[in-house]
């Protein structure tokens, strides 16, 4: 089936099976490797992306439900304050969960406090197997604060 969406600011059109997940469409159809697939069950959050501003787990989200929508992957935020803060705080080790973490922080609404407790609760759907979370959470807090301060 022909699939189309605006992905990271670019109009993408490709052939995608009707029963594909969004992560499969983005990686296999749109060749966007900013979306990582780890658990494939909607648990780890590595495949997090935004569909019309709403965070979803791409591995369990139907590709065609996102047809024609604006989709943002970590590639949209690669040069942003959250990604920089994660690197500076030592929040990246193997890096596989990092794209999902960056997207997740960018998706947080203003009622999520930019504190350690707030971030730990809000990022419960994003798992990391390497860092032990200390640097990652510190980086996410700093990144969210910088994002809200309007840092480009």
């Amino acid at each position: 089936m022909r699939w189309s969406a605006e992905v990271d600011g670019r109009l993408v059109e490709c052939d995608v099976p009707g029963n594909a997940s969004l992560a499969e469409a983005l990686r296999g159809g749109a060749e966007n490797t900013a979306v990582k697939v780890a658990c494939g069950e909607g648990i780890c959050g590595a495949c997090s992306c935004l569909v019309a501003g709403e965070r979803v787990h791409g591995c369990i989200y139907p590709a065609f439900r996102a047809y024609g929508q604006v989709i943002q992957t970590a590639a949209s935020f690669a040069d942003g304050p959250v990604a920089r803060a994660l690197v500076e705080a030592g929040g990246v080790q193997c890096g596989f969960c990092t794209p999902g973490m960056v997207v997740a922080v960018h998706s947080l609404s203003t009622d999520v406090p930019a504190t350690e407790a707030g971030i730990r609760h809000a990022l419960a759907g994003n798992l990391c197997r390497c860092t032990g979370y200390a640097g990652l959470v510190a980086g996410a807090v700093a990144g969210l604060q910088r994002l809200r301060a309007g840092e480009p």
């Binding site: 029963n19 997940s21 494939g40 369990i60 065609f64």
Partner: peptide, 19 residues
């Protein structure tokens, strides 16, 4: 929601999806 049909927990991908 498709969380089971598309995830590994669902035990096999259906041929067609009726959303």
């Amino acid at each position: 929601g498709a969380t089971l049909a598309l995830g590994k927990l669902g035990g096999g991908r259906p041929s067609h999806l009726i959303d």
